[in-house]
Computed example of a mutant assay.
Amino acid sequence: MALYQGGVAPLIADVMMPTMDGFTMVKEMRAAGFEQPVLMLTAKTTIIDKTTGFTSGADDYLTKPVDLAELKLRVAALLRRAKINSARQITIGQTILNEENFTLTINGHSTTLAKKEFLLLFTLLSYPNKIFTQAQLLDQIWGIDSASTEDTVKTHVSKVRKLLKDSNDVKITTIRGL
């Protein structure tokens, strides 16, 4: 485990280890309440392996051989997201999203959000400039087994956009075709 002066210690785990494979280790750690960021670093490259890695609880997955510059970038991104998650609040300019009470505060005016609206906005703000498909958001927020459709995502994005209308700090942009 690497130490970081900001108080977050990311775990970099290999899949192929002598006593227990990394997938099992991460799954058991998550079940035990371990919330630190985990990066799988492995020679296993198939989509099945990557799916297993992410579903076991890994936050990122990098295959060998490793470009050291990319590894540093990924660890920095994990630490940034872990800082956001541990703060349980995201502040961008005059826009504040607070997980403790599910509030969105814009220029000093607070609104309590519905759970799915909050989770949608928290996900989007936790990964600035990342492109999410409707299917990804549906799986991540409503769950893979949900009966909800991509129309549900569209409806919630529309509601969140309306809530953000007074924010000069946060905008949700749709990229057609993705």
Rank of each mutant, 00 (worst) to 15 (best):
A2C: 10
L3W: 02
Q5W: 05
G6A: 12
G7R: 03
V8K: 02
A9H: 15
P10S: 09
P10M: 07
P10G: 10
P10N: 11
P10T: 09
L11V: 12
L11F: 09
I12F: 00
D14V: 09
D14R: 00
V15P: 05
V15G: 04
T19W: 07
M20Q: 15
D21A: 08
G22D: 10
F23Q: 00
M25L: 15
V26K: 01
K27C: 08
E28C: 06
E28V: 12
M29N: 04
A31K: 12
A32L: 09
G33F: 01
L39C: 05
T42A: 10
T42P: 02
K44S: 08
T45K: 09
I47A: 09
I48W: 00
D49Y: 09
T51D: 14
S56T: 05
S56Y: 01
A58S: 11
A58V: 02
D59C: 03
K64C: 07
P65S: 10
V66G: 03
L71I: 03
K72Q: 14
L73K: 07
L73E: 08
R74D: 02
R74Y: 02
V75N: 03
A76Q: 08
A76V: 03
A77L: 12
R81Y: 01
A82R: 03
K83S: 14
K83V: 02
I84Y: 02
A87I: 06
R88F: 02
Q89P: 00
Q89V: 11
T91I: 13
I92P: 00
G93M: 08
Q94M: 05
I96L: 12
L97Y: 01
L97M: 04
N101D: 15
T103V: 06
L104W: 10
T105I: 13
N107G: 12
G108H: 08
G108C: 05
H109N: 11
T111F: 08
T111W: 04
T111Y: 09
L113F: 06
L113N: 04
A114T: 07
A114F: 11
K115P: 01
K116N: 14
F118M: 01
F118W: 12
L121R: 01
L121T: 02
T123Q: 11
L124K: 05
L125T: 10
P128F: 12
P128N: 13
N129S: 15
K130V: 11
K130T: 13
I131A: 14
F132M: 04
F132W: 15
A135K: 14
A135Y: 09
Q136K: 15
L137Y: 04
L137V: 07
L138T: 01
L138R: 09
D139S: 09
Q140I: 14
Q140E: 14
I141R: 00
G143D: 12
I144T: 15
D145Q: 11
A147W: 04
A147Y: 04
S148R: 06
D151A: 13
K154T: 08
T155R: 15
H156P: 01
S158I: 06
V160R: 00
R161V: 08
K162N: 13
L163M: 14
L164S: 09
S167A: 11
S167K: 02
N168V: 13
V170Q: 04
K171A: 14
K171T: 15
I172Q: 03
T174V: 15
I175H: 15
R176H: 12
G177Y: 06
G177T: 07
G177R: 11
L178A: 13
